[in-house]
């Protein structure tokens, strides 16, 4: 049984100018102890989908799905009280802006301890010991002293370490990391990623890594989902994705990686992700796709079979290298 199973997830926001589909028809499953990367440009709906799983979207969002289940338990129909027993304890999440994600009015110790107090029956002293242990685990220097620090006294990297310590405090089975390194210095980025991978190996949890950085995907992920304009355009094992991308968008993303560039110009993808008002007819990617035809402009493409990464495309690429 997969840890997290999502089928046909759709998130619609009520906006002043009418409903806006931020995520549409996303399928995914995450197995225990794997790293699933969710990749896409800004506005591709990759965070919104995961926030929907966590139940963290504002009231203006409507979440529908054929199935949204954690360890077989249906999360769409369960009470909010039952959901809160899963959120934080079984599924934890860390965010893009670590400094803003910690409450400025409370100490690090309070914020970690609160998590333990909510989800475990540890005593006060045990919670303290566990907090110190957690800070040690995430590589925080002087953990004992840091417990009484306030977030404004920490750097971005240290704040993210605290967030991670807090997230893993109740041994979650799934950690959702929403662009955990985007806001950090380049040197710190690698440290935090290494830490996440090490913790995943140590604790056996699964990791859902939301990122727009294909380099990060190549280094860490087991499987990859590529999202574009709220739609899931491809889903593959990481090796297959890099050697034989089936969707033209994935192909373009890979071509835009500096280390893969041929010649002295970096091939960018022309245009931008369509927003609420300018969604094209047919395939959402057709205005930016080098291979688009009349058919792409008029007919919504189907998902290709799993061997072709379920690519959302009329003309999938690299069909000769279909996964067995």
């Amino acid at each position: 049984m997969p840890l997290l199973e999502v089928r046909n997830l759709t998130v619609t926001f009520d906006t002043a100018s009418g409903p806006f589909k931020a995520v549409s028809g996303v399928d995914l499953s995450i197995e225990p102890n794997e790293i699933m990367a969710i990749v896409g440009e800004s506005g591709s709906g990759k965070s919104v989908g995961m926030l929907a799983v966590m139940g963290l979207l504002p009231k203006s969002a409507t979440v529908t799905a054929d199935r949204l289940a954690f360890e077989g338990q249906d999360m769409l129909t369960m009470s909010s009280r039952a959901r809160r027993r899963i959120i934080g304890r079984e599924i934890a999440m860390i965010f893009q802006e670590p400094i803003a994600s910690l409450n400025p009015c409370f100490t690090v110790g309070f914020q970690i301890g609160e998590m333990l107090k909510t989800h475990t029956s540890l005593s006060r002293g045990e919670r303290h010991r566990r907090s110190v242990e957690l800070l040690e685990l995430v590589g925080m220097p002087e953990p004992e002293r840091r417990l009484s620090a306030f977030p404004h006294q920490l750097s971005g990297g240290m704040s993210q370490r605290v967030m991670i310590a807090m997230a893993i405090s109740c041994n979650p089975k799934l950690l959702i990391a929403d662009e955990p390194t985007t806001a950090l210095d380049v040197t710190i980025q690698a440290q935090i990623l290494d830490l996440l991978v090490a913790l995943k190996n140590e604790t056996g949890m699964a990791l859902a890594l939301i990122t727009h950085d294909m380099g990060v995907v190549a280094e860490t992920a087991d499987r990859v989902i590529v999202q574009y304009a709220g739609e899931q355009v491809e889903r593959q094992q990481v090796a297959g994705l890099f050697s034989a991308p089936h969707h033209p968008y994935t192909e373009a993303l890979l071509r835009a990686l500096p280390e893969r560039a041929i010649g002295n110009r970096l091939p960018a993808i022309p245009g931008v992700v369509p927003g609420q008002g300018d969604r094209p007819t047919g395939c959402v990617f057709n205005p930016r796709c080098p291979y688009s035809t009349e058919m792409c402009r008029e007919v919504v493409p189907p998902h290709q079979p799993i061997e072709l990464g379920r690519a959302l495309c009329h003309y999938p690429r690299n069909t000769e290298k279909a996964a067995a």
Partner: peptide
């Protein structure tokens, strides 16, 4: 609307 309120919700607090 602050991020830390979202964090608090993500912790499964009431």
């Amino acid at each position: 609307g602050e991020d830390y309120v979202r964090t608090a919700r993500a912790k499964g607090l009431s």
